[in-house]
Nucleic acid binder design. Sequence first.
RNA 1: CGGGCUGUGGCGCAGCUUGGUUAGCGUGCUUGUCUGGGGGACAAGAGGUCGUGGGUUCAAAUCCCGCCAGCCCGACCA
Length: 590
Amino acid sequence: MILRMSTMFLRTLRDDPVDAEVPSHRLLVRAGYIRRAAPGGYTWLPLGLRTLNRVETIIRQEMDAIGAQEVHFPAMLPREPYETTGRWTDYGPNLFRLQDRRGVDYLLGPTHEEMFTLLVKDLYSSYKDLPLWLYQIQTKFRDEARPRAGLLRGREFLMKDSYSFDIDQDGLQRSYDAHRAAYLRTFDRLGLPYHVVSAMSGAMGGSASEEFLFPCESGEDTFVSCTKCDYAANTEAVRVGEPAKIDSAGFAAAVVHDTPATPTIATLVDLFNSRSDLKRSDRAWHAGDTLKNVIVNLRHPDGRIEPLAVGVPGDRDVDLKRLEAQVAPAEIIDFTDEDFAKNKNLVKGYIGPQSLGEKSSSAIRFLLDRSIAIGSTWITGANAPGRHVAGLVYGRDFSCDGVVDAADVRDGDPCPKCGSHLLIRRGIEIGHVFQLGRKYAESLGLTVLDQNGKTQTVTMGSYGIGVSRAVAAIAEANHDELGLKWPSAVSPADVHIVIAGKPGDETAGAGEKLAGELSAKQMTVILDDRKGVSPGVRFKDAELIGTPRIVIAGRGVATGVVEVRNRHAGTASEVALAEAAEFVAKMPTT
RNA sequence: CGGGCUGUGGCGCAGCUUGGUUAGCGUGCUUGUCUGGGGGACAAGAGGUCGUGGGUUCAAAUCCCGCCAGCCCGACCA
């Protein structure tokens, strides 16, 4: 197939669009792959659509290869199933809702668990029909508060979502493993580097869950990976080990001190180090010796607001994202000065654990960070202005209503698996696999009869790949200052032929001939046959568009050769015109 | 949703402070001539409700208010 630049619907931009920051967005717009059509919505131009289709094809092939079957749902869905599972409410403002002329509610599907569950319920009722794996490639809608970075976070995006249906947990594990393996193959073929990390399942529900993250500075997810072992996890999902208990039998009793003007951890530590009666003999006090008690409000999906106190070591901040993942579906909102004013038992800046907890004077639920050991000793607020207590022992002097992973995770923190150091990195989520379990099957009543004729609730898994996002991620992974450089498997064309001679000379004929030969070999060829365009422009455009191979039919044609370039390696070789088609077809493209 | 910055032909920008002819520049686009291996030269053109609605004024791209949109930071989220 020959794509002629003279007629292709394409306009490359000389300058970077000012509203595009991340490389994939900038280059995909500049090279004429996409155009913004709406906030968070993009139009695919011919080149972009070719790449999108190729990404889609690879994903489809790998899904088909494991025996998943493709179906297709409407994007506009009825309210009822989502009402039944609670997601009509849980999804909150992120759900696009609309009404028909009679005022009946609909939504634009953010993901399709409910619909797949109901479809299987509709048609199947025996264990003999399982396992069953279904998938679709569908436009999804989420009313993102802030769409950004072009295709990386849109409000409308293309996603491949699959669902597995099994009779029991063993079956689910096999389905999960098969999908996970298919994802590894898919991302390998797409030329995307990735980390598989443990993740939280969030609003999806369910238990085990892993994310496929493409490591990238413009990514929005933070994850840790161990420098020694294979442990990797989304920071939200990092679970630190239970600390060893400390024997506090011989510890002195806690003492309350006047500590005027110490509303922050830093001022408190300074005061303790500067006063001879408070100074430690063995070392200086540091922030990690203090217990910081942070209060937030939880807003439950039903609108109820409940305060929650969290105790973390003073050298750490509460990671709200991490905390929120553990209180889902409730969301965290600020505990304001007004809230402080209402609760007389709290002294802002001097809150201590003695006045926290469901059974305490404040009646506020109090959770401690998991890193805090029973028997550990703390300096913390004394619930009076300008006063702190030292030597307060967890388990002896105060208790809590539960533990939580709330403290921020840092570079160099110990690995929960091997104890070595963790490294913090950023990434783009390109895939996510969940073991859903029975949540959806239960609420929607998807059951089958087992071999004993007994009713069993089906166990489900759900597996997603962001297709349009993958295009952006591939662009992030494959570009340089000149433009895009696509992996062969997803490039909009296999080769780009630049006619670089004067009008009327033999270079045009040579380019046309080579294009014909390559096309006959089933290759897709972009042929720059534009009239009156200078060679410099053609070179720039070829590099910007970024096919893996570029052929220049220019001054060499007079002596029977063309120049064949490898866009990835940056190498070039002169090849006899007669052998060029063969050479191009066989050349490596990395 | 909070904070900051921005919105002027397809793209990149100037003009706004201090209101006043016909809103300007580069690039892209059209036509012609030349040029022909790194976004080439010269010339002549086309293309603009100055984001949008209201207000102040004899007069608004310019000043004031609302709204919309974009980018960045935070919050949120795939």
